[in-house]
Amino acid sequence: MLTIERLSKSFDGIAAISDVTLEFPTGSLTAVIGPNGAGKTTLFNLISGAFKADAGRVMLDGIDLVGLARAEIVRCGIARAFQVASIFPSFTVEETLNAAVQAHRGRAAVLDRRFPLAECCERAHEVMDMLGLAKEADTLSARLSHGDQKLLDVALALVLQPRVLLLDEPTAGMGPDERWQMIERVYRLWEREKMTVVFIEHDMDIVFKIANSIRVLCYGRVLAEGTPDQIRGNADVIAAYLGTEDGANP
């Protein structure tokens, strides 16, 4: 279980996350929602070690992750995909995953053999198949569609064999069709791999359709948490974020 206890972080005196306590049960598919500036991405940055928390703890199965280096956090089993796809433009999809697997296995500095290493290819193909990227294996990453670039970013996180996968707006910048395709892939991945998935999402249709629990952040604090049904009926959430049936929906 991933547990966040009384976590706080401020930038220049402005609290981005204050006193946040959250639980993400093992094997859950949780959406983190909230208006812009609610601290969602900051939360991910704190969990993955990109930022160091001012106070509080991030516990993964009893190990405190605060203060560990990024690489150590990865080794503990947390991997993330980025809001803007963070990929290797000059690599083909297949090369990207081969290189990523070899890096993850500590074979990045091998000089006496040729790329790709045969023992890494199997895993690379496995990850490609998981996300349906195999048909683009020979495509240059820079030439992939926006959606496939995001998928490749998720694939890079999967290479790390995480127990917890953090997805920062997996559908950002996509058209409606592409969005559902992406989210379907994420859902199938979660079903099959039985990992804990936490995702940030703005599209409420998607959130209520696939998440089995929801955490709502607002101004760096936890506004509400619960099942989709509980959140849908929560007065605070409706007032602050979802809007009423006839009101504007942000």
């Binding site: 890096a103 500095a109 790329f115």
Partner: peptide
């Protein structure tokens, strides 16, 4: 080599 591709990464 694998090293060369890591360098490109």
């Amino acid at each position: 080599s694998p090293f060369g591709y890591t360098l490109r990464m």
